[in-house]
Amino acid sequence: MIKIRNKNVAVVSIFLMMAVSPLVCGQPTAKTIMRKSREVSRFKGMESVTELHILNNRGGERIRKIAMASLSQPGVEKRIIRFLEPADVKGTGLLIFDYENKNDDMWMYLPALRKVRRIVSSEKGKSFMGSEFSNADMSAPNLDDFTLTLKGEQSVDGMECFVIDMIPVSHELIITYGFARKEVYIGKSDYMLREAHYYDKNGTLVKVLHAKDIQPVSGSGGKSMARWLSMENKINNRTSWLRILQVRYNPDVNASMFTTAYLQKQ
């Protein structure tokens, strides 16, 4: 009898815990927020033209124009990037298969070599075309690579944001991503990334990412995109920023573009 009563108490307790937990916790977990953030910034198919500005610490500026297309398929987001300007990098292409649960596949086409080369995706910390952005900044992070902690909330440009700490789970991943800790600021209402701070092993702030001009993408069912991103290097005082000049939501994007054969097409 006692046994039965205890069992009932246990069931009721679990039920109460389940019912009350959202009230007690009040907030989603860091991983839930990051998953949601990844989800809102993922489009079934999208094409864009972007201008990348690379500024040195003496005020000199170089501009690269890039065309990009992406296609989301189950378990993988495929992206193709082609440099349009300036003349000395025109035709350089990059094909990325960004998997949710494993290392990405990446291929690069260099017109000077007339060949497509498979490149190692663990080179995520490498500078993207000489800019302060890294290859990792060009794709969504693999969440299993990080220990995620919800640190609190903070306002960024008048928007209430979740503050999440991302710490690579191994020394190899610190080298791969090029940072020891990243603090990301995710909008509470729209789950869009607003800001990110990158720290090295000594806890020194190395880079700061700002995402601005967040606008809905027409026809995408309410999804939005930051049209302006900047990366400020606090160590060498260099800045790079990119502006999306044109964007088109296209769920029927031509799937044959996401092949190495297309990558080398002139």
Partner: peptide
Amino acid sequence: LQAQGLFEQSV
């Protein structure tokens, strides 16, 4: 015959 998208037009 597929219409060119923004990416192909830009390239």
